[in-house]
């Protein structure tokens, strides 16, 4: 099997695994973890788009006489993944904070056990 295909496959299966977790999870922490898995999957996918077998790092050094782009690994996906990871981190952190608040307000971190309250003040 081609390595690229394998990577694609891995990415998608991670996303689906995570999605399954989101769909079935009742515990908010678990849902957030499942989201993390999804993000990992999609990051893998992104990296794979820039993957080339036998590529060299996309860094121009003085020894290059001419630019031979085809041999470079594509640098853009890596930049994207970096951003994506950072965002994923931010989201996870924020959601954990929200879960803490959720726990303070409702006394639980399960989703099903909370009814929407009717009281609104602003």
């Amino acid at each position: 099997m081609n390595l690229t295909v394998l990577l694609y496959f891995g990415g998608f299966s991670l996303i689906l695994t995570g999605f399954y977790g989101v769909l079935t999870g009742k515990n908010l922490i678990r849902v957030i973890l499942a989201l993390g898995i999804m993000e990992a999957g999609v990051n893998l996918l992104l990296v794979t788009t820039g993957f080339k077998p036998k590529a060299i790092p996309p860094i121009i050094v003085k020894s290059f006489k001419t630019l031979s782009l085809p041999n470079f690994a594509d640098p853009l996906p890596q930049a994207l993944v970096l951003t994506s990871i950072v965002i994923g981190f931010g989201i996870t952190a924020l959601s954990l904070a929200l879960i803490v608040k959720y726990n303070e307000e409702n006394g639980t971190i399960k989703m099903d056990e909370v009814e929407n309250s009717e009281e609104v003040v602003e």
Binding site: V22, L28, V31, L35, I91, L94, S95, L98, I99, K101, Y102, E105, N106, V114, N116, S117, E119, V120, V121, E122
Partner: peptide, 14 residues
């Protein structure tokens, strides 16, 4: 400032 806010936020976030 109400007990729905974190619920609402998570309900949007996920």
């Amino acid at each position: 400032k109400n007990s729905n806010s974190s619920n609402g936020a998570l309900g949007y976030l996920i």
